[in-house]
Amino acid sequence: MNEWLDLAVALLILSNFMLVNTSRLMSCIRIVAIQAVILSVIALLSHLHALDVRLVVLVIITVALKALVLPQVLKRVTVGTGVERELSPFVGYSLSLMAGGGLLALSFLMSHFLTVPEPGLSRFFLPASLFTIFTGLFIIIARKKAVTQVMGYMAMENGIYAFGVSLAIHEPFIVEISVLLDVFVAVLIMGVAIFHISHEFDHIDTDQLSV
C-alpha cells in the first residue's frame, strides 16, 4: 500500500509545479480541484488500517466542496470577469518554476528537523504538504490577479488540510466540519469581492486597485 501512497505524494508535488507554471486561470482552477482529490486519496490511504465512517464522510464532503463546488464558483467568477490568463505576474513563470524547486528543497530541509510521530506514513508526506503550503503562499505573493490569489489561498488550505487529516485525525468531527465551512464561506466571499472588483475597476489586478 505504501507505494500507492508514495505515488499520490509524488503527484501532489507535481501538481504544485504545474500550478506555479500555469498562466491559464481555468487550468489553475482545475489543478487546485485535482489537488483536493489527491489529498483525499492520501487521507484515505494513510488510514486504510483503521478506516471509519467519520473519515469517509469527511473525505466525501471535502471532495464535494473543494473539488466540485468551489471550482465551479471560481469558474463562474472568472468567466464573469472576462480574464483568461495571468499575463504579467510579479514573478515570471520560469522564475516561478525555479522558486518552486527552491521551496521544495526548503520543505525537505524543514521536515528534516521535525520528526513525524505517526508510523505508517510516507516519509515524503510532511515535505509534500509543507511544499503545498509554501506554493500557495508563493502564488499569493507572486501573482497579480485576484482570482489567482484566491487559488493560492486554496492551495495553501489544501496543504494544511492534508497535514491535518493525515496527522491530526483524532480531532472531533465538528471542528473539522466547521473548518471546512469557514474555508468555503471565505472563498465564496472572495468570489463576491472579485465580482465587485471587476465591476468597479474593469480589471482584477490587485496591484492597481487604487486607481
Binding site: 485576484a146 465587485h196 472588483i197 468597479e200 490587485t206 486597485l209 487604487s210
Partner: peptide, 8 residues
C-alpha cells in the same frame, strides 16, 4: 473602490 481595496 477605495473601500473595496481595503476590504480585499
Amino acid at each position: 473602490h477605495r473601500s473595496l481595496e481595503a476590504t480585499w
